[in-house]
Nucleic acid binder design. Sequence first.
DNA 1: CTGTTAGCGCTTTCAT
DNA 2: ATGAAAGCGCTAACAG
Lengths: 314, 314
Amino acid sequence: MTQKLTILDIAKLAGVGKSTVSRVLTNDPKVKPATREKVEQVIRESGYVPSKSAQAMRGGSAKVVGVILSRLDSPSENKAVSGILDVIYQAGYDAVIMESQFSAEKTNEHLEVLTRRNVDGVIVFGFSGCDMSAIETFGHRAVVIAVDTDQVSSVDYDHKGLIELAVNKLVEQGLEAISYIGVDESDRTTGLMRLNAYKECCERLGISPCFQTGQLSYESAYHLTDKVLLAETQAIVCASDTLAMGVAKRLQELGRTDVQVSGVGATSLLSFLFPNTFSIDPGYYQAGAESARLLIRQLSEPAGITHLVQQASV
Amino acid sequence: MTQKLTILDIAKLAGVGKSTVSRVLTNDPKVKPATREKVEQVIRESGYVPSKSAQAMRGGSAKVVGVILSRLDSPSENKAVSGILDVIYQAGYDAVIMESQFSAEKTNEHLEVLTRRNVDGVIVFGFSGCDMSAIETFGHRAVVIAVDTDQVSSVDYDHKGLIELAVNKLVEQGLEAISYIGVDESDRTTGLMRLNAYKECCERLGISPCFQTGQLSYESAYHLTDKVLLAETQAIVCASDTLAMGVAKRLQELGRTDVQVSGVGATSLLSFLFPNTFSIDPGYYQAGAESARLLIRQLSEPAGITHLVQQASV
DNA sequence: CTGTTAGCGCTTTCAT
DNA sequence: ATGAAAGCGCTAACAG
C-alpha cells in the first residue's frame, strides 16, 4: 500500500488549490469542466481515496447506520438485514451491525457505541423485554422492527394477517377442523398476537378452537401435537415453520398424513420434506428493506413517526 | 437529544484543560485521581460521548473491521460472523458488514468503500471465482475464510478431516458399503476437496467408491440418491447437511431407513427429523472467532502470514 | 501532573 | 471559478 495521500497532495499534483479538489469531491457545480477533468484524472492515477473519517468529522454525517439484531443466525432476521443492506448501500450508507442476544443491557451498550460512532441512524430488531428508552433518544433517527411503540417509527409483521391467511387458505380447501400450535403468550408478537388471530378466526368462522402453546422449537411442537390432534382434525396451523417442522414430523410418525400443516417463514425445506404442508411468508426481506427506506427518508426530512405493517403472502 | 457536547465543554464544566479530559478518555495514567474522578463525573452527568470520527481521524485507527460475506442467510457464514462479532467487539472494534452475493465485482467495490472508511482490517469469505488481487493490497490487514492463498492470512475448514471423521465414525460402527453424495468439483472446497477426501478414505479402507455430485441443494441430492444406492449400501456420506436432508428424505420414501446418513453443518434439525443420521460440525463459529483473533493480532504486530485450519467435530 | 499549542484531512465561508 | 483561511473534535508533543 502506497503512502497515504491527502487532498493537499492531489491539489499540488493537479496544480490547483485544495479547496478546488474538495469541490470536485463534493460535486460542486462551480468548477470549470477542464479543471475538474484534470483533478479527476490525477485522483484516478494516484489512487487517492478521501478519508471518510475526516469527511464525517467535518460534515457531521458518517453515512453509517447501526443495526442491532438479536441473533445473526435467526433466518427471519438475517433475511431482513439483507434487505436493509441492499437499500442503505444503494443510498451510500454502510452498516455496522451488532448482536443483542436478546439482552436489553447489550442493546443499550451497543446503542452507546453507535452514538459515539456518530451513526446517522439505527435500526433495531425488537425482542420481548426490549428496553425502548435508549432507542427513543434517537428520535426520528431510529426505526424498530417487530416492536410496538409510539415514540419511534416502526415496521412490524402482520401477525394477524399471517394467521388469517393460513386459516383462510385451509378453509377454502373445505377444511374445518383446524387446530393451532404456537408459542407462549409471554412473547407478545409470535406468541400472543398470533394466538389471538387464530382465536378470532375460529370465532368468525364458527370453528371450535383447539390449541396449545409452548417453546419456539420443533421439539416443543412435536410434543404438543398429540394434544391438539383429534380424530377429526384436518389441519394444524403453526405460528412458525420451526413449529410446523415438529408437528409434521409427529404426524408422519402417526401416519396422519391427511392432516394439513401450515407454518410461517417461507422455509422451502418444509414443503420439500412434507408434501401436505405450506408456509406463509411474512416478507422478512421486504420488511428490512422498508425499514431502511423509512430511516433514510426520515434522515433527510425530519418527518413524523410512521408505523408500517409488512404484508404477508403465501 | 441534547446539544452536541465536545471535549471542550467538558473541560470547562470540570474546570480543567481539554487535554486533561483527553487524558482521562485515553486512560493516561498521569492524571491525579481526584481530577480524574471529577472529570469522569462531569462526563457521566453530562452524557457526553466522545466522537469516534474525530478520534479516528486523529489517531489514524477507526477501530473498525470490514466483513464481506457472500450471503447473510448462509447458515455457515452467519455463524462465523457471530464469532467474528464477539471477538472484535471484545477488542473494541466494530464491524461494517457487506454482502458480495458471490460477485467478485461487488466484492471489489465493497473493498474500495472499506478503504475509504479507513477500516483497520478486513475479513473476507471466499467463494469460487473470488478475485484475490484487491484483497491482497490489504496485506497483513486482511484475513480470508475458506480461500486458498499465500498472499494473505487465512482460516479454512478441514474439508478432508470433515469427511474422514464421518467415514471413520461409520466404519467404527462396522459399516463398509459407504456411498457419497457431494457437489460439483467446480466448487474447489465443498466440491472437489470433500470428494477427494472420500476417495482417499475408500482407498485407505479398501472400500469401493460409489459417489455422485451435483448442485448444493436438497433436490439435487434427492435425485442423486438412487444412483448411489445399491442393495448392499449401508451408509451415505454427504458433503453438507442440505444434501443429507435430500438423501434422508429419499431413503425414507424408499423405506431404506437402515441406511445411515451423515452431513456437514451441525444442523440439529437433521437428526431430529431423521434418526439414522448425524452431522459433522466444521466449527463455523470458531472459525469466525479465530479469523478475528488472527486479524487483530496482525493489526498490532505486523507478523507474517498465517494459515489456520479449523478443526471439525462430530 | 496539567494547560497550551499544533495539527489530522476535509469542507466551507470569504475574498479575490 | 478558485485560493486562502478558519475550524470540526480530538490527541500528542511541549512546556511548565
